[in-house]
Design a protein around this nucleic acid. Structure first.
Lengths: 196, 196
DNA sequence: CCAAGATGGGACCGATCGGTCCGGACTGAT
DNA sequence: ATCAGTCCGGACCGATCGGTCCCATCTTGG
């Protein structure tokens, strides 16, 4: 090696791509646009990511890491109170839609934009949703919910619906009722109501 | 006029476009593909619809009419029992995702694919969701719900979440809990529980 | 039976798509 | 100072995008 590999390149690409994909949708953004906004050349981009599909996958994967960390800290804030932790996850999701960048849930959006089940980005997105579902189920079990799986799935509905409605009808639309709805569903399943 | 305008042309285009858009997503389908599948020429297509955006709008509009009719008949089946009608709407939504063509809610998908607020198709989709929200609110009011708007919005969350999860994790995933969740939320808001 | 003219199929347009490749610039060793 | 090695920007590729236009075809009024 005779030249510095510029390690920040990959990160810069991902950050730029993340912004464009989030704002306009992955399908609407061309690689040319990513190249122009990063100021790099196409060869640099295609050395880091072999194809656009892989770039989308990396983007979704990074968003998963980010979301997972936020969920983890939300849970940690209510250690020993899994029912409260479940609510905290919904609260955290709602907060993330309050900004003006309410473009919906990336994981569901990506699934909507790329229907091919084999698409790397879609697989990554579905994997995230599956892990979230399992996490909710584990928390519901810890909370001694009467039917943990049912409670977890109901909260999945609320969270998905929250993002979808925030993106279409605005954060102050139906999305604003997500926490209240989650509380009702949690209380209904957990023997000792803690939501009130 | 010296030649029959062939009134079936518009319908044929819409049917073909509807199938392609539903299966692959509106953004992934090119006008060339629509032309090839209809067997018509491009000029015919562009005489009926001035642009792809308008075709998407017409598609969404027709889907609105279809959905609205189905919702109407679901309500009619429970006339005089608005609380039951609310549940019937969710039931009807769930049934529509049972087929193998679970590609999510067209109205939300269209919003996800076309982020520009001025896009005709997106406007149509948002308008549908708004009307649905108002209808749910009216039914909730008739059912003497303690907080009709809140109940309507919670059901919006359930319905949206139902479609999103059916599309990503399958109809037997979290989507399967949508009716049970709706029942809980309705019972919680309606003085005389009728869901049990 | 013919002229008028709307209609439909598809060639064609510039722009952009995802992806490849090459020439020049910069680096580190000699 | 020179040279070899590596990496970068951007020109370039065929395909396809949404959209326009031309011409053969067919129908209908006279």
């Amino acid at each position: 090696m005779t030249r510095t590999p510029v390690p920040g390149t990959r990160r810069r690409i991902l950050q730029t791509a993340a912004r464009l994909f989030r704002e306009q949708g992955a399908r609407a953004v061309g690689m040319q646009q990513v190249v122009e906004e990063t100021g790099l050349g196409k060869s640099a981009l295609y050395r880091e990511f072999t194809s656009k599909d892989e770039l989308v996958k990396a983007w979704v994967g990074e968003l998963h890491d980010h979301a997972w960390a936020q969920i983890g800290s939300a849970i940690a804030r209510h250690e020993g109170d899994p029912a409260r932790a479940l609510l905290a996850i919904v609260e955290q999701a709602q907060e993330s839609t309050q900004g003006s960048d309410a473009h919906g849930c990336t994981f569901y959006n990506t699934s909507a934009e790329f229907r091919d089940p084999g698409h790397p980005g879609r697989r990554e997105a579905v994997a995230h949703l599956d892990r979230l579902r399992e996490l909710l189920c584990a928390l519901a079990t810890s909370a001694r919910a009467t039917d943990p799986k049912a409670l977890a799935d109901m909260l999945m509905l609320i969270i998905s619906g929250l993002y979808a409605n925030a993106a279409t009808l605005g954060p102050s639309g139906p999305a604003a009722q997500s926490i209240a709805a989650a509380r009702i569903l949690i209380d209904q399943h957990v023997p000792t109501p803690e939501g009130s």
